[in-house]
């Protein structure tokens, strides 16, 4: 598909990243449609976070091309890259909130530092973002005074306050219990519809990602093994997809067995 195709927001071609002798991403091709929720699935260590960080310009890929809205992003501090950063946001696995700033100051930070808006307007917009995410009462709280879910919402408020077109989510549900995982995906889906941004999520939570996403891709050993609709992923008989589905199902089954107190099946079986 062409990089200039009107429905594409992000086009990735031949992305390659290596750390020493270890190849983490090998010739990755991917197209992200505008206005969609796109999940990149994969087991731990498959290179998902590295892939996302290469796209978000946190890591520099060794080879490959990335086009955003039809514009090829060069290397270094090009105007296209600056424009890309202005129109994107990143939600970190650890939330990456500034612990010495209050919730309101955290949300206001990107506006204060990247726009020339007057301070009252910045405050109004930041309060608006906090209100949208039901955090207005916590505006003077520091991140350490908020619960895990509230911190996640605060990080999302900071990510959307600049009205980005593309939001990267790095393992947004890592370390959360199933109920909270569900809540986080619901939150992403709800706000994606409300604000209309494109969401690119890397996760290993298959069930939630399939329910919430418009499209999914499977990254396995640094390569894209599958791209398609969630229903296609569920029914795909491709060995790489089946293996991944089976491995996550096996993990869920063994957890159920542990809960019931039955003896565990042999690891080899």
């Amino acid at each position: 598909m062409s990089a200039a195709a009107p429905d594409l927001l992000l086009h990735v071609e031949g992305l390659h990243k290596q750390f020493g002798d270890r190849t983490v991403l090998a010739d990755v091709h991917l197209d992200i449609p505008r206005g969609s929720i796109f999940s990149v699935l994969g087991p731990s260590g498959a290179g998902k976070s590295v892939f996302l960080k290469c796209l978000a310009d946190i890591l520099r890929p060794d080879a490959g091309k990335i086009s955003f809205d039809g514009q090829l992003l060069g290397t270094g501090a090009t105007p296209a890259r600056a424009e890309f950063r202005r129109r994107c946001s990143f939600l970190f696995q650890s939330n990456a909130l500034f612990d010495s700033l209050t919730a309101l100051e955290n949300v206001a930070l990107p506006l204060e530092q990247t726009t020339d808006l007057p301070l009252p307007q910045i405050r109004e917009r930041s309060l608006g973002a906090l209100r949208e995410l039901e955090l207005e009462d916590c505006r003077s709280h520091y991140p350490s005074q908020l619960s895990g879910g509230m911190q996640k919402r605060l990080a999302l408020a900071r990510a959307i306050v600049t009205r980005p077109e593309l939001v990267f989510f790095d393992e947004p549900t890592a370390g959360l219990d199933p109920l909270r995982r569900n809540a986080v995906f619901t939150m992403i889906a709800q706000y994606q519809r409300q604000f209309g941004f494109t969401a690119l999520i890397v996760t290993h939570d298959v069930t939630e990602a399939i329910i919430a996403s418009d499209r999914v891709a499977l990254l396995n050993q640094g390569r894209i093994g599958f791209v398609g609709a969630p229903s296609e992923f569920s029914s795909s008989q491709l060995p790489v997809v089946r293996d991944f589905r089976d491995s996550t199902a096996a993990l869920e089954n063994s957890l159920t067995v542990i809960r019931r107190g039955e003896p565990l099946p042999s690891v080899h079986s």
């Binding site: 950063r85 909130l97 990247t114």
Partner: peptide, 13 residues
């Protein structure tokens, strides 16, 4: 360590 510096860079700061 807590990715706050990386967060600044992704904000374009």
């Amino acid at each position: 360590n807590s990715e706050q510096i990386a967060a600044l860079e992704t904000m374009g700061v």
